[in-house]
Design a protein around this nucleic acid. Structure first.
Lengths: 347, 347
DNA sequence: TATTGTAAAGAAACCGGTTACATAATAAAA
DNA sequence: TTTTATTATGTAACCGGTTTCTTTACAATA
């Protein structure tokens, strides 16, 4: 930064050609005589010259940067998508700009502004707002304003007023997969804990849960489906609630609205020294792999979510032309681990 | 991107002033007549004009971007530092460019190149290489080349040949804190598991462990200090090894080289239905908070690490002038949770 | 009133690339 | 050999800001 950096003009002078030629050699897609090319390349190597991407961006009006806004990278649900997106973007020549909004709409606004100023070519928006009953009006306005300037894509969280691409996990199918598996293991009494009624993810899962039980002709017991919330403490609560309400007639398998809730449930069962359940989580966070026992859980298709998000954003023709379905569902899969092996069932 | 964007010239034309004046109004630190200023500001608001940061960067030769290379953002040890650095950088007007090297030196090189081209104003390098007995010669060369162009700072991982700032947790003191605590809880037989001899972190911790025991006049038993590795499986192994070697004469408290190892140990003890220990981890990853029982662990001073890294990088005078001590230690602290409450000791 | 100083604003160069357009050099065709 | 394509290269404008250097306007001082 401090001392004047070396430019294509320096290279050009030493190679006794014009800067345009140097530029062409670097770009590689223009006709340049092999001899000239060699000469220029040699000097580039000699000085280990690296073209200034800022100048290039200004000139070409393309920054090869994509903004990625998410609530909290510390949460492995988000980081797993992000890292896949990043790896893939790299292969396409794009760099991601990670922005942690901390679920704070002021920070989100701030970042939207920064990203616009920095001329990113698109924005990926993840999470958070799916948990809001009503999306903020300000937010919708702000986002549609942003969408005038660049493509926006949402992962796992569609806002109704917004006509942008949305790509998300087919969570209903996730629940179905779980129940298929549990049934194949001999379970007939299956409960679902966690979540809050009225919030999209929860409602989707609860409905899928009911449908799947119906499909198998299994009993649907309202007292086996307990709303509570989304974190570990809510899982503990749910267990206590479940036991109190059902007394002896408990389910043999429990599905959590997410990993945290089911981990809370596991914990509470351990504390109470009861272990009547097969446990299945949802999300496949790092906690699931490392919990004790290791948690069977539905995994989001992290890789596909990340890669498809990038693809959709950087392929201009796909983005603009046909106004086909902009709502894309990706298939989750079951990660079977020890928390619902038969050994837990027999017990 | 598509349609021509509105520029400072458009604003100038409409306000009937020169572009220089608009620029001055935006910058805010030049004398502009209040009347003119108003006029310009109004038009800026009218169009919701956002100055092009790329053009500004080129002109001012400052990008307000900092590269942050780490092995894997999915690992909460790294993400916790990153997020603190990001939050702080934001308040200073800087944006971080996150680069996941996946512990792959080719990717690291690639990212170093990208960051240089993008004209970042500094690079923070975290983790990974501390686990290598010998740092890659290529890597050292490459890094010192980078250091000619911009400041580089390493967090928790100093490379010997490299004269750059390094900021890291005082891990020796971390171990001391643990032992202070355990002793205060009545423990006298304290073991340490995990790590690999010859790797810096491990050696530092083992030495501190011995010193602390000596300080308290407690027995140092070689068979209570078991090398094994750094992940959950290594923790399980260590327990088996410990039991086999020591038969009945086991320690009453176990320190893990990190959270993963001690979680593995916990798991194996559960499986074997033995629970003679107080368990203490190291790192305070998200696993520690959410494990069962919740894990007492030494926390890195994540916030300070992140913030100081940014400060050191963006304060030019600090960076260049005095070649004072470039090796900075930050103090960790103990996060006491249920895994080593007295109840576990008495049992 | 003439002179000097200061504040406000404009003109133009500059940052380091890209690229449309023009020109020179070379190869192919007449 | 002259004409015509084609390839290779140079010139210069442009991207959208910042900033140095000047000029102009106006107030203060002599």
């Amino acid at each position: 930064m401090e001392h004047k950096s070396i430019t294509i003009y320096d290279i050009a002078k030493e190679a006794q050609v014009s800067s345009a030629t140097v530029s062409r050699v670097i770009a590689g897609n223009y006709p340049v005589k092999e001899e000239t090319r060699k000469k220029v390349i040699d000097i580039i190597h000699k000085y280990d010259f690296q073209p200034n991407a800022v100048a290039r961006s200004l000139s070409k009006k393309e920054t090869k940067m994509i903004g990625f806004i998410l609530p909290d990278i510390t949460n492995s649900f988000f980081s797993q998508v992000f890292i896949e997106a990043e790896k893939y973007a790299l292969t396409k020549g794009y760099t991601l700009l990670l922005c942690n909004s901390m679920n704070n709409s002021e920070m989100e606004s701030k970042y939207l502004k920064i990203l616009a100023e920095r001329q990113v070519e698109g924005i990926i928006l993840m999470g958070g707002r799916i948990n809001k009953a009503l999306p903020d009006v300000m937010e919708v306005n702000e986002l549609s304003q942003v969408m005038d300037k660049m493509p926006v894509l949402m992962i796992n969280g569609k806002i109704d007023g917004l006509d942008c691409y949305s790509i998300r996990t087919d969570e209903a199918h996730g629940i179905e997969i779980i129940i298929d598996h549990l049934v194949s293991q001999g379970h007939e009494k299956i409960g679902l804990i966690g979540g809050i009624e009225g919030i999209t993810t929860t409602d989707i899962k609860v409905e899928a849960y009911r449908n799947a039980l119906t499909k198998y002709g299994l009993p649907i017991r309202d007292s086996w489906q307990i709303y509570s919330g989304f974190d570990i403490e809510r899982g503990e609560e749910a267990i206590n609630n479940l036991i109190e309400v059902n007394k002896e007639d408990l389910p043999t398998a429990l599905i959590g609205i997410n990993d945290l809730v089911i981990i809370g449930a596991l914990k509470e069962c351990r504390r109470k020294k009861i272990n009547p359940f097969a446990f299945v989580g949802f999300d496949n966070t790092d906690l699931a792999k490392n919990s004790n026992p290791e948690l069977t859980t539905v995994s989001h298709p992290y890789k596909e979510l990340g890669e498809n998000a990038i693809d959709l954003l950087i392929q201009p023709q796909l983005n603009q032309k046909k106004s086909e379905n902009k709502d894309i569902l990706m298939e989750p899969y079951l990660e079977v681990r020890e928390s619902c092996r038969k050994i837990f069932i027999e017990k």
